[in-house]
């Protein structure tokens, strides 16, 4: 089995946002993931040499429409399950209110534990212990795609006067950094300034995503 040329197959963020990422068709295990996690998952596959693990991503913009995630995951599982020995879903609850878990249970596939990617990047226990309710979170992907996921969908590009209605109760933007990237940190800091929030950067690396994928890759 040949190793996939990862660097050349990763689409740009705009495509990950609107279209997602197709499976290569190689490997025994398929990860069905959120497009916002594509870079991190491909990096872990490369770092660990998991040639038997394939990945397909659903459009990352589903993040803004969590009610659509369970059906999209169901469709992807049904589409791919005959072609792989094992499937796993790289989503946490992600605002589906338990619906995605019910869908995955129904389909007999595992998913990532926890409420959302902020929690599993930070580490579930640590995130819960912080009990932060006035923080707004960005990951590497969301920092790069801030305009597509936050600024424009909330209409702030057209109506900046709505800012206080959306973010008036928030105090801080927390950038959960998966990588050491000064330019991305500067971008996240700029996002905080645009929202009128204090800024904090936390380096998380891949957090619980790494251990979860290790578990699935080893099985």
């Amino acid at each position: 089995m040949t190793t996939r040329p990862l660097e050349t197959t990763l689409p740009d963020d705009a495509r990950l946002t609107s279209e997602g990422f197709a499976a290569s068709g190689r490997g025994r295990t398929l990860l069905i993931a959120c497009g916002a996690l594509a870079r991190e998952i491909l990096a872990l596959i490369r770092l660990n040499g998991w040639a038997h693990v394939d990945v397909t991503c659903l459009p990352a913009i589903l993040h803004n429409h969590p009610d659509r995630i369970p059906d999209a995951v169901r469709d992807a599982v049904i589409e791919h399950r005959d072609a792989y020995d094992r499937l796993a879903v790289v989503y946490a609850d992600c605002g589906t209110g338990g619906e995605l878990e019910r869908t995955c249970d129904d389909l007999g596939v595992e998913m990532v534990a926890g409420p959302h990617c902020y929690a599993f990047f930070d580490g579930l226990g640590r995130f819960a212990a912080r009990d932060e309710i006035t923080s707004f979170y960005l990951t590497d992907f969301l920092a790069r795609q801030f305009d597509a996921f936050v600024w424009k969908p909330l209409g702030l590009d057209r109506h900046p006067d709505l800012l206080a209605m959306y973010f008036g109760n928030y105090e801080k933007l927390v950038y959960l950094a998966q990588t050491q990237d000064d330019s991305l940190t500067a971008k996240a800091r700029d996002c905080a300034a645009r929202l009128g929030l204090a800024f904090e950067r936390r380096y998380t690396g891949y957090g619980d995503l790494a251990t979860t994928l290790e578990h699935w890759a080893a099985a």
Partner: peptide, 11 residues
């Protein structure tokens, strides 16, 4: 209509 427009109307 979407949320931003509703918020402007509400305002």
């Amino acid at each position: 209509l979407f949320v931003p427009e509703v918020l402007l109307a509400a305002n």
